[in-house]
Nucleic acid binder design. Structure first.
Lengths: 411, 411
DNA sequence: CCACTTTTGTCGAGAGTCAATAGAAGTATG
DNA sequence: CATACTTCTATTGACTCTCGACAAAAGTGG
């Protein structure tokens, strides 16, 4: 029933991580450990349906790869206590990179997708890929020496960029705000310096993936919205991240809204959501009322300070966003909408505006179980997502199977 | 969950054959025949990467199940001529049912998903499931005797209903226009009369699936829109039909549009697309101009006759629809939008209105390769889709594997 | 009619998996 | 503290499945 190939390009939610009974290699056994839990061999045999002897074969392979190992013994349940086996989270590293309009964030994550070491630096996107990727690699090297690890320990690289990406090749596709990056082959560049799998995706998509796996609820259908300097969204539908035909799915910033009549957007169209409700536009609206607000942070601070006009403006932005989200709910019928990005720090006021419109416009069927909330991860959302997707690909059954074959050939 | 193409690519190619260690059973071999083409054994061995002897084992199983057989011998290419093996399209039957607001259509399809015998009758939906399903079964029996086949020949039932469905269980979920059908277990009902797999889905979803497989172009991301008495859509994204959390995805009829201000919809909200651009509303708009138009057919006929006001009204409906579709394009980035339903017979005029708005509002990236066209299948679209989805499930690797095991147990 | 090509049927070797059995390491009990 | 019992781990031979080789069959072309 599930499309196996699609699992490649997405991170399944924990409850979907099942092993197909009967035929399963070392790669599929590994999947059982990805939740971070330790298991006894008997446990695993029951889970996979394999004979313990067969299972042992797989475990040997994974142990030789250094990915799993014994952890503390479990408590006896009346007989010999089980040896507990688990993923060794520090066995390898994931290099996560979040490229923003004006910043570069780099992190080293362990195999639990938790960023362990983190660094960032301001950049100028138009310096082009060569300069910026070099800077990213430099930061990575710094982190590596801080972590006392080496480049060889990096098993995969996950990178988020602020624009559409051809996911299969890892090339940015006509990114509006990334001059010089169009079709630049990012994975190829990394392969010259690292022997690792490289995954590139749109940053909002990565934030969506990162957010998704943070809660255990039904998250096969949800929408992540980033509201900051721009407005974008990542769509997870049917359990899979949706990228669309050209990788531009989720581009809600340029949907027309009612309050946008007569307001022109930098994209050349009239009445775009982004031309009305983005962080800079909220700030501008406040300046028009002689309130000092120049950045997204200013807006958030004003709201936090209880400034009435700022609260009003944010709530109105919420309504505007809600207009688009109401349509999205009709179209996609998600079970959750999560709001992230700098402006989402304005929390309840933004949500109030969104909810006001979405619950008014939405069909009862679609909205009765709909949750709308703010994101649980902040700046590091994209980094977490990047770690997760890179990890997922690097530890996919196919990838592990390939490594196992390699190992076998070497012996 | 449906993925015709992905199932195909799931057959290990020669170079992957070593990695996936021959886990392909009879079920996966069958998938190679679903395109309707005949293959020689050597062909198949090359395609699957299996040894011919192994392949033969699988073919024996499928032959015993009666699903495949020898067809005419192929031409010699310099040596012994190959025996060509193909799916036997008449081996089993698919029962396809399309339940509409006021009609019931039933068809018997062969394994190529082509409806062979077809019948229909008017119904009253509110008579409830028992009466109507009985009527459907009666029609099916009539067709069976006409086809000189029996109930046992039916391998699967595919049924489309005009409302949301919990796909996994086949139960309608709070369908607005189907009183008495809520949570009725349709598959269970059929199981009392037929030993067949039963698949139930929303009718527009089925039309989308039916349309999808009619053209060979990239159709992993496309949107099917039905415009008739109501307006709805079926979403195929990432190669899969999207149903959403409650099965109500694609419900574009109740998205608010600009021209809808002050117009109230039967759903209780203001300004819904359906309250402005549906068939009955177009007819009403024409009547307001003292033009005799009472049905969808009247509207289509007037347009065909070149009536200026009707053309204008249809084009305007296209613009209204385009407004919603422009947002959908931003959100989903499809490569195709297909318009079906009764009103789509008004063809180019409707399309012109849609294109006008979509291409104006859409981002260049998303619209440069976007095709917008009318459907190629008409009344039988849902029947074709129902056949296809039922067939796909009935002949899925898993289902075939199960049947093969059964067969083995019997021997 | 014979050499050559291509496809089809058969069978033993080898790889991989399983279930059984023996052994190890604990707990409960008198 | 010895014994019975429980639970987990290690090993091994039997069994199943798949592969590749080989031989036969059924054509073509000179």
């Amino acid at each position: 029933m599930l499309c196996f190939t699609d699992v490649m390009t997405n991170i399944p939610s924990p409850q979907n991580a099942q092993v197909s009974r009967g035929v399963s290699g070392a790669g599929e056994v590994l999947q059982l450990f990805l939740d971070g839990n330790a298991h006894s061999r008997t446990d695993l045999a029951a889970l996979t349906g394999m004979a313990r002897s067969t299972l042992q074969e797989r475990l040997d392979t994974l142990t030789q790869l250094g990915l799993i190992g014994l952890v503390q013994e479990g408590a006896s349940t009346g007989g010999r206590p089980p040896q507990r086996i688990a993923l060794l989270p520090e066995a390898r590293l994931i290099l996560a990179i979040d490229l923003g309009a004006s910043h570069l964030r780099v992190a080293l994550s362990n195999l639990a997708s938790v960023p362990q070491f983190q660094a960032q630096s301001p950049i100028v996107l138009s310096d082009g890929p060569e300069v910026i990727l070099q800077a990213a690699l430099k930061l990575a090297d710094d982190l590596l020496s801080k972590a006392k690890r080496q480049r060889d320990d990096i098993i995969a690289v996950g990178m988020g960029v602020p624009g559409p990406v051809i996911f299969d090749t890892g090339q940015p596709a006509n990114p509006p705000i990334m001059p010089g990056w169009d079709r630049f082959n990012i994975p190829e560049w990394f392969h010259q310096h690292l022997d690792a799998l490289v995954i590139v995706d749109n940053d909002v998509n990565l934030m969506a993936l990162g957010e998704r796996n943070q809660n255990d609820e039904d998250n096969d259908n949800f929408l992540f919205v980033k509201i900051a300097t721009g407005i974008g969204s990542g769509i997870i539908s049917g359990g899979l991240l949706q990228r669309g035909a050209q990788g531009t799915a989720g581009d809600i910033g340029h949907v027309r809204i009612r309050r946008g009549d007569g307001i022109f957007c930098h994209c050349g169209n009239e009445g775009c959501l982004e031309a009305v409700a983005s962080g800079p536009k909220i700030a501008q609206a406040l300046r028009d009322q002689d309130i000092e607000a120049h950045s997204n942070t200013d807006v958030v601070d004003l709201v936090a300070a209880g400034n009435i006009q700022a609260i009003h403006a944010v709530r109105q932005a919420g309504r505007d966003l809600g207009e688009v989200l109401a349509a999205s709910v009709s179209l996609l019928n998600p079970s959750q909408i999560v709001i992230g990005g700098r402006i989402s720090a304005a929390g309840e006021h933004l949500l109030a505006g969104i909810r006001e419109v979405v619950y008014q416009r939405g069909a009862p069927l679609s909205t009765q179980h709909l949750q709308i909330r703010t994101s649980r991860s902040w700046e590091d959302g994209a980094l977490r997502g990047a770690s997760m997707i890179a990890l997922h690909h690097a530890l996919s059954p196919q990838a592990i199977e390939a490594k196992a074959t390699e190992l076998l050939a070497a012996n």
